[in-house]
């Protein structure tokens, strides 16, 4: 039976990818951000996951408005990145684990989460930036199952629904017969707003509350509506819903290994959190 080792929750701002590509991690603007990641990699070195489920949101690389799945799951042997139009180098490819993908698809749909399954799925910066942060050396990356959540076009799935999806992902992983360790990763957030006259909105107080509640009392965050999250965290701060999916997959009691918060990275408040599912 597969075990869920823990969860990693991280921002995925494109500028991070550009900073890595240009080797700027040590510069004054970037160092306080990148300093948040060595403890994450140390934890990964200790638990050595055999597979990763990565919950992210596509920003118009793979999905367009012609067909916009609320929840999609990759079921491919390999995932490719591609040009997003504004100059990030193309990375990857990334190995998949299609057997686990199809097992999760079966399990989730039986559990009444009707996923869109994708045998081809381009992964954008929301996938590639966290992979670079967590495993700078490509050969150390475990095979992945990507789950994409619509944050482009409202209506978006509610925080409560996302948490429930995470619970179902957790049941699906637990019913995988092989004795492997799985890490569940969420990407996105924290507060930010790119569009409108409120562009540049950041809410430190709310972000710090979320970083705490995700660990200790995630159900409290499921009481918000999407409109609440837009108001409190900004138009793109709704990416907190990916964190709720990945938190739902873990048990009720987890131990916080590490958390780090830094403002700003580009237009965004950057957060990273590691929760161990087995040390509690």
């Amino acid at each position: 039976m597969a075990r869920i080792l823990g969860g990693i929750y991280t921002s995925h701002i494109p500028a991070i990818g550009a900073a890595i590509a240009k080797g700027r991690q040590g510069e004054p603007y970037w160092k306080p951000f990148f300093d948040g990641y060595p403890p994450v990699r140390e934890w990964l070195d200790a638990v050595r996951p055999d597979a990763a489920v990565i919950v992210y949101n596509d920003h118009g690389l793979n999905f367009f408005l012609d067909k916009m799945p609320t929840f999609a799951i990759g079921a491919a042997p390999e995932y490719r990145n591609a040009d997003e139009g504004w100059g990030l180098p193309t990375l990857g490819p990334y190995a998949g684990c299609p057997e686990l993908s199809w097992h999760l698809a079966e399990s989730l749909v039986a559990d009444e989460f009707d996923m869109t399954t994708c045998q081809e799925m381009l992964v954008d910066h929301a996938f590639t930036v966290p992979m670079s942060l967590l495993w700078p050396e490509p050969e150390r990356r475990p095979p992945v199952v990507p789950i994409s959540v619509n944050t482009v076009q409202h209506p978006l799935p509610t925080p409560a629904r996302c948490f429930a999806l995470g619970r179902a992902v957790g049941r699906g992983i637990a019913s995988w017969p092989e004795d492997i360790g799985v890490v569940v990763i969420a990407t996105g957030g924290l507060s930010h707003q790119l569009d409108g006259r409120r562009a540049g909105f950041i809410n430190r107080e709310f972000d710090l509350l979320c970083l705490d509640r995700i660990a200790t009392e995630p159900e409290a965050l499921t009481r918000y509506t999407i409109r609440d999250l837009v108001r409190l965290a900004g138009s793109q701060g709704v990416e907190l819903i990916m964190w709720l999916v990945a938190r739902g997959a873990l048990g009720g009691h987890v131990s916080k290994v590490h958390s780090h918060y830094h403002v700003p990275v580009s237009n965004t408040a950057a957060g990273v959190l590691v929760l161990d599912n087995e040390a509690a």
Binding site: G60, F64, L65, G85, Q153, H154, D195, R197, R227, S235
Partner: peptide, 26 residues
């Protein structure tokens, strides 16, 4: 929410051609 767009069905319909063009810029 002052200064904030909610990109919902009404805006998605209004902007379809514009967004499709911008999507091509990948």
């Amino acid at each position: 929410i002052p200064g904030t767009f909610i990109f919902d069905g009404a805006l998605a319909m209004r902007g379809y051609a514009l967004n499709k063009m911008c999507y091509s810029f990948n």
